[in-house]
Nucleic acid binder design. Sequence first.
DNA 1: GTCGCCCGGTGGACGCTGTCCACATTGCTA
DNA 2: TAGCAATGTGGACAGCGTCCACCGGGCGAC
Lengths: 219, 219
Amino acid sequence: MKADPPTDPPAARTPPARRPRGAVREGLIAAGVELARAGGPDAVVLREATRAVGVVPNAAYRHFADRDALLAAVCAAAMRELGDRMAAEVARVPGAYGDAAAASGRLGAIGTAYLAFAREEPGLFATAFAVPQQHAYAPADEGAEADRSPLGQLRGALDELADAGVLDRGRRAGIEYPIWSAVHGLAVLTGQGPLRNAPDQDRRRIEELTLAFIADGLA
Amino acid sequence: MKADPPTDPPAARTPPARRPRGAVREGLIAAGVELARAGGPDAVVLREATRAVGVVPNAAYRHFADRDALLAAVCAAAMRELGDRMAAEVARVPGAYGDAAAASGRLGAIGTAYLAFAREEPGLFATAFAVPQQHAYAPADEGAEADRSPLGQLRGALDELADAGVLDRGRRAGIEYPIWSAVHGLAVLTGQGPLRNAPDQDRRRIEELTLAFIADGLA
DNA sequence: GTCGCCCGGTGGACGCTGTCCACATTGCTA
DNA sequence: TAGCAATGTGGACAGCGTCCACCGGGCGAC
């Protein structure tokens, strides 16, 4: 039907600029992370990410099943960044493993880093916990030795606290969940929730109250 | 230019079916609530709400500045529903004001109702706390006598607990925030967060641990 | 009682999004 | 070296939020 004009060379299409293997995938995730940083999970727009990478929208579908799959990867990256921040803060606390003061300091560092991340990177924080219902990344390596996940690090700090004798062994079991809940709830309520517009002074006081409440629960 | 065919009566447009005053606005909010119930804040789609009301999409702009304004109204309604559920559950606890056991029971009812709402209405729960950055509804009537907001009710229960002598007066100030944080964090983590896929048994145990942790902090 | 305004509806359009299909080209592999 | 999978392109579609122009009817001012 459609007679190709012979004057049109078949290679008229733009030559696809070949990139090193996996570069587009990594680039899409990186671009998505920046979008999430600026505007939370809803700002992770597939077409915008492909634009940042310099590729046509459909190219994304060679690397992700759909937008939610990309978002899941971005969420995982955000969660990793949170874990890294916490690990870095914990590493700054001096003192040998098992020293009571150091152990307490490390637990505090974990909570502080968590809250600082939520405050300084609200978009990434929200994204880290906004994993789409499908595509949930596997928490398979939970038993891994060096667990850099927030929960893993919290568990490590509590184990040390128990080893140091600060935390009663009988109270250790499962206590990471109330603590995590309290810190996470605090971060959410003051970050994106109803308390988000509270003046800084009030927010700080609420933070102190909550951390003191947790410390009380460990004594 | 365009010669109007004289056979076309000028009243060819469909006669706008007039509705009672404010009906469309209320209908849009109600439709939005149902959408939110089924799919969370992202599911509150303006066009879909107008469809449910039986009106053209643009009609929504006579009642709301934009989609976010509609969403804000839906969020407020969701928050009200949460408050109503809590109040209903609290009202079921027998015992006069100031009775120690009754006061403890009422605080427990508040927490339980909060968690039950998050579990049974995940969409509405998420929506209640997803108020868009602009259009934040005014928390102006905070000092109102009958404060049915979740925080207001929590404060009431804690005041009663203090009046009943169960809670040290010295520890009363600001303790609503750690408690709210813990319960809210628990609801979020087990509802939409990383703990959402935990088996029911584990979830229940985590819930018990957290509530016990809070109870400990009051003793 | 009539006029005029504005409230609240309609129709149509635009740009943006996610997603699907068909096709082209490259580079590894058999 | 032939072929095939991987990975890019172009074009299209429906649905979304939003803007503009129009318009009819109810209500208050005169």
